[in-house]
Nucleic acid binder design. Structure first.
Length: 648
RNA sequence: GCCAGCGUAGCUCAGAUGGUAGAGCAACUGAUUCGUAAUCAGUAGGUCCGGAGUUCAAUUCUCCGCGCUGGCUCCA
């Protein structure tokens, strides 16, 4: 087949010759033209055979996702070359492109310092400037093994052994040769916008038991402009960091002397939580859940019976009272099962939906704690649904609907995943299959796409995980739906069926927000601290121009408060501009300014936190406007919800 | 838990080859009565994360803790 590679007609027979032709064409004189002609959207992947009938190949190294991938992966090679030049003893392992950048893992006997990163980056710039071509070569395994062994690169040999096969492709740029499937940019000169960001420890093959390598992270883009934009976005994201907002808005704090991973909620933060929790209670009651509450401590034997002691012990706190060992609950399910067992349940009673805002403690490893997003004590909006097998599907769909309503209300987009049986687990394979199928079917029926996460389920059952993203685009798991045939068995939960015989109910564990702490953390980042009006601890603030307006300010504030609006009057002897600035920084939705003309008219002048001036309104008009804004319509299902008007 | 970096006033940050430290904002006091993001002046505020070691002397150097940050592993 004849194809045109950037103006050169080349005869291509197979994959290898394509690669060779491509490489030759570009390495000679075509580099500049390639950059200039890079408008097409065909991606050349040298690992796949060029489709029959192809007449033109336009390589893509631009800002398209595929192009960025090639650029980033090539930059990883560039970095590896720089590292090998500066520190020849370092052994190379793997270096893939990742979201927004790349990394490369090295085995090196001393840690890389921030200064090392600077020298490496300088070296990279130098190599990029030399514009050395990336050249592809396919060799036999024996040849590749002897090459890498000769260089002392044992990790590469190990990778080849694992991959299997008799032939491997090598890419070289200058003196540096790496085992790689490609593709790459034609030459190092294409790499113009990169920056090394951080060093981190990472285990070989991601396994804690393996040797820890040193991972250098970097970011790379199609051009310096995009790089700059990305770095600016990172700065912007820092401003939205919920930990920073927590301090600025006086919502919560953490205390070294009190212990890591424990949150202290200040008045405004505690109020925010309370509003959110009340909302959840009402929403659950409305959907046929009943509210229950269990204790914090349960005897150790109970945790042994449930399997938590064997499978979850390292995450639990234990204590002893009168020679009796107790475990602090890391989950709420046991209490809910004990409540279930307090009476004989009929098939007519099911489904039962027990809801609890349950405070749980989990001993997370010290290195994983992260603001509100990963703490050791948190409140789950937890529920356990006990149902007949024939009700299972509908119950799961009901939960998915619930999740969609809530995520839509907060304007979150989310991603779903199904996690299957892990190594450490209890129950039979049949039950696991049944449960996994039930979850898949429900997602299919709900029309949601999902990924499969093999081996990542809870120890008692498979689960659907729903993740939302923080300011830095990191995903955080919030909602989860777990299907469990095992614990009902272990705790001998039964119901009496239509046939008069005893049957086993199925249990669904589920959370919607996940944890109140994590959800508030992500929500704060999502809205940059400007909470929706219905959740704002202070919804309106009355601002006086001078002290002669105090009386009218009090009257207005009382009027709003009587209507259920959370309002304060700022009557301090400060200039209006100062008070506006403070209210603005505190992200208070409505500022009601009162001066001479407002007193005369008996009204208020309304300013929103977006900076908009809505002009003079009567106190009653202000009340109506703020209440209307506190009513957030659900995006699906046409329901609407007002915090104070919700039916219980 | 592992790798790396960091910890100075309530907050944001300066600072010294080892000689016990500053700024802005906030707080407090006084003056000012002022129209949509900062009025002026003054006062007070710190075991420089904790402990041990080296030293005549440690906030600074070393070690051990605690905590935080970014990753890894794990997870709501």
């Amino acid at each position: 087949m004849q194809v045109d590679i950037q103006g050169q007609t080349v005869e291509i027979e197979d994959q290898a010759s394509c690669a060779q032709a491509f490489s030759n064409a570009l390495s000679k004189k075509m580099m500049k033209q390639v950059v200039a002609a890079r408008l097409g959207d065909t991606v050349v992947d040298l690992t796949t055979t060029i489709p029959a009938g192809t007449t033109e190949i336009i390589p893509v190294f631009d800002a398209s996702p595929e192009g960025l991938d090639v650029i980033r992966h090539s930059t990883a090679h560039l970095m590896a070359e720089a590292v090998k030049r500066l520190y020849p003893e370092a052994k190379v392992t793997i270096g893939p492109a990742v979201d927004k950048g790349f990394y490369y893992d090295f085995d090196f006997d001393r840690p890389f310092t921030p200064e090392d990163l600077e020298s490496i980056e300088k070296e990279m710039v130098r190599i990029a400037g030399a514009n050395k071509p990336f050249e592809r070569k396919v060799v036999s395994k024996a040849e590749a093994v002897s090459l890498f062994k000769g260089m002392g690169e044992d990790y590469k040999v190990e990778i080849m052994d694992d991959l299997g096969g008799d032939e491997f492709s090598l890419y070289s740029n200058g003196d540096f040769v790496d085992l790689c499937r490609g593709p790459h940019v034609p030459a190092t000169g294409f790499l113009k916008a990169f920056k090394l960001t951080t060093v981190a420890g990472a285990y070989w093959r991601g396994d804690e038991k393996n040797r820890q390598l040193q991972r250098i992270y970097g970011t790379a883009w199609a051009n310096p402009k995009d790089l700059k934009k990305h770095l600016q976005q990172l700065e912007e994201a820092k401003k939205r960091d919920h930990r920073k907002l927590g301090t600025q808005l006086d919502l919560f704090s953490f205390h070294e002397e009190g212990g890591a991973g424990m949150t202290y909620w200040h008045p405004k933060g505690a109020l925010l939580r309370t509003i959110l929790e009340d909302f959840e209670r009402k929403e659950h009651l409305r959907r046929g859940y009943s509210i229950v509450q269990g204790p914090q401590l349960l005897k150790r034997e109970l945790w042994e019976k449930s399997g938590h002691y064997d499978n979850y012990r390292e995450n639990m706190y234990f204590t002893e009272i009168d020679n009796q060992a107790y475990g602090v609950k890391p989950m709420n399910c046991l209490a809910h099962m004990l409540i279930y067992k307090t009476r004989v349940r009929s098939y007519r009673d099911l489904p039962l939906r027990f809801f609890e805002l349950g405070v749980v403690h989990r001993h997370e490893k010290s290195g994983v704690l992260h603001g509100l997003l990963r703490v050791r004590q948190f409140t789950q909006d937890d529920a356990h649904l006990l149902c007949r097998p024939d009700q299972l599907q509908d119950e799961i769909i009901g939960i998915i609907d619930f999740v969609r309503d809530i995520m839509g209300l907060f304007d979150f987009t989310f991603e779903a995943e199904i996690s299957t049986r892990p190594e450490k687990s209890i129950g039979s394979d049949e039950d696991w299959d049944r449960a996994t199928d039930a979850l898949k079917n429900a997602l299919d029926k709900a029309g949601l796409s999902y990924d499969i996460n093999e081996g990542d389920g809870a120890f008692y059952g498979p689960k659907i995980d729903i993740a939302i993203k923080d300011a830095l685009d990191r995903k955080w798991q919030c909602a989860t739906i777990q299907c469990d045939f095992t614990l009902p068995e272990r705790f001998d939960l039964v119901y009496v069926g239509e046939d008069g015989a005893r049957h086993r109910p199925v249990m669904l564990h589920r959370v919607i927000l996940g944890s109140v702490e994590r959800f508030i953390g992500v929500l704060l980042e999502h809205c940059g601290g400007a909470l929706p009006t219905w959740l704002s601890p202070e919804q309106a603030r009355v601002l006086t121009v001078t002290s002669v307006h105090d009386e009218h300010a009090d009257t207005v504030a009382k009027h709003l408060a009587a209507a259920g609006i959370r309002v304060h009057a700022d009557k301090r002897n400060e200039k209006l501009g100062y008070k506006v600035r403070e209210a603005q920084l505190e992200k208070i939705p409505y500022m009601l300014v009162i001066g001479d003309s407002e007193v005369e008219a008996g009204g208020v002048n309304v300013r929103t936190r977006s900076g908009e001036n809505l002009g003079l309104k009567s106190p009653q008009e202000a009340v109506e406007m703020i209440l209307a804004d506190s009513t957030q319509p659900f995006k699906r299902g046409g329901m609407s919800y007002s915090f104070d008007a919700c039916p219980v």
